[in-house]
Simulated assay, not measured.
Amino acid sequence: MPKDWDLFLMPYRQAVDELKIKLRGMRKQFQQENAHTPIEFVTGRVKPVDSIIEKMQRRQVTDDLLEQDMQDIAGLRIMCQFVEDIYQVVDLIHQRADLEVVEERDYITNVKPSGYRSYHIVISYPVQMVHGEKHILAEIQIRTLSMNFWATIEHSLNYKYQGAFPEEINERLKRAAEAAFMLDQEMSAIREEIQEAQQLFSYGKGQQTSDDQVTGNQVTDNDHEDKRK
């Protein structure tokens, strides 16, 4: 087990920070081209030390294999509006020259028994350290907003029941997962109309911002938030 966890996790933190900037940059490029962006937003984290230790013990991961066997110490999550966007993001990641895809798991086509849906990609990412380059494994989870809502609730319940859900809750979670996916399918069915409406809305917001700047009116905090997204 690492003697100095801060030192051990340093390249993982750097990888998460860099990847968040790059993935958010992809979103910005679509916006600048006035095109639909498949990326709604991006989050990232480095797994807490206590979670790493617990997983090492549960999966019997030895110290010398920690960096190879634990693929999610660095974790990124990409949220999408539509299921179709997920596969577009997957293609975009494959096209990048600054990382290598080493493993993929499609839990959308191959739904987990619990009802869990998401697309997982494990990448090898080169981090430039003071003493040379270090390749870090990182996991990128790509899912819709409704998939993420379900997964967040299921994850919270997991802490309470330690994975041993009562049968009633287990069945309700499965039904909720199917309902969430039905929502995604309905949204995909009217995708063109939604995207057209969003384009009109964005154009209108842009016009309003320009008018505010010309007349000297203050721009609201919500407008600043829109610009950051």
Rank of each mutant, 00 (worst) to 15 (best):
E193S: 14
E193V: 11
E193T: 15
T209C: 06
E193L: 12
M182L: 14
F201M: 10
L200S: 06
K174P: 00
E192L: 13
G206Q: 07
A164N: 12
A180S: 07
E186I: 12
E192D: 14
K160C: 03
E193I: 12
Q208V: 08
A189G: 14
A164W: 05
P166M: 04
S188Q: 15
Q195D: 10
K174N: 00
Q185W: 00
F201Q: 13
E186W: 09
Q185A: 12
E196Y: 09
L200Y: 08
N158S: 12
Y161A: 09
N158H: 08
G163F: 10
N170T: 07
Q208L: 13
L183P: 00
L173P: 01
A197Y: 14
Q198W: 03
R175F: 02
E186Q: 15
L200D: 11
F165A: 01
D184E: 03
I194R: 09
Y161F: 13
I169K: 03
Q185K: 15
Y159L: 06
Q199G: 09
E193M: 13
A176I: 04
T209I: 11
I169C: 03
E192F: 13
E168G: 04
Q162S: 13
F201G: 04
L173A: 05
A176S: 13
Q162P: 01
Y159R: 04
Y161E: 08
E167I: 06
L183S: 01
E167N: 08
A164C: 06
I169T: 11
T209H: 05
A164P: 03
D184N: 03
A180C: 13
A176M: 15
L183D: 00
Q199C: 07
